[in-house]
């Protein structure tokens, strides 16, 4: 026997069909009884719009750029997410915060333009992991279908959450994440999530 890396390979058999096999009919009836038995089985289909599959609590869907409790954008345009992204889906342009814009942007530098190409994104969640400011999260929302490719490039208008309808990302915050957030020295935790989470614990 030749060298085998796994024990799964099989030697090809070229044996002639026996007289019984040449008749075909027994095999045909066997096959047909198998298909017939499936006639009485329950269908595995989930009828989508009416019926929805249960999503995992940590489902990774469309991103959200969070604001803090005062409504200021958390993102500081550090570019960590873009570097971490294996699909190179994220691009951004930075700008400096002017005086009087403190209520809009939490940090001195902010993302004037922030785009994620949803066709490139593989929803790995690495951007979320890389972000030092807890600005970007993946959520359990599903990216809409579009007719044009350009429409899949989501800008800040679609990504940044609105204060009137805030997006809950606590489900993505698994014990490890929470543990991480308690690390002393991570100042940015204290303001919003940190406080709430501490109350919870």
């Amino acid at each position: 026997m030749a060298l085998q890396l796994t024990n799964r390979s099989k030697v090809v058999s070229n044996k002639e069909q026996s007289a019984m096999e040449k008749l075909y009919l027994p095999a045909v009836f066997k096959g047909m009884s198998i298909t017939l038995s499936h006639l009485f089985k329950k269908s595995a289909t989930i009828r989508y719009p009416e019926q929805k599959r249960i999503m995992a609590p940590v489902y990774r869907g469309q991103h959200v750029l969070k604001r803090d409790d005062n409504g200021a954008e958390r993102c500081t345009s550090c570019g960590m997410c873009a570097v971490a992204c294996p699909a190179e889906a994220i691009t951004m342009e930075s700008a400096e915060r002017k005086k009087g814009e403190e209520h809009l942007y939490r940090e001195e530098k902010y993302a004037a333009k922030y785009e994620i190409n949803m066709l490139r994104c593989v929803f790995c969640g690495l951007c979320e992991e890389a972000c030092p400011k807890e600005a970007i999260f993946l959520t359990d929302r599903i990216v809409d279908t579009e007719f044009e490719r350009e429409d899949f490039i989501y800008g800040k208008d679609k990504l940044v959450e609105k204060m009137t309808e805030r997006i809950d990302v606590t489900k993505r915050q698994t014990p490890e994440v929470l543990e991480f957030k308690k690390t002393p020295g991570l100042k940015h935790n204290e303001l919003f999530d940190g406080k709430k989470l501490k109350e919870k614990h």
């Binding site: 499936h38 006639l39 595995a44 289909t45």
Partner: peptide
Amino acid sequence: ASFLQDRVGPN
């Protein structure tokens, strides 16, 4: 066909 394949078919 879909019944034989545990599906629903056109509905």
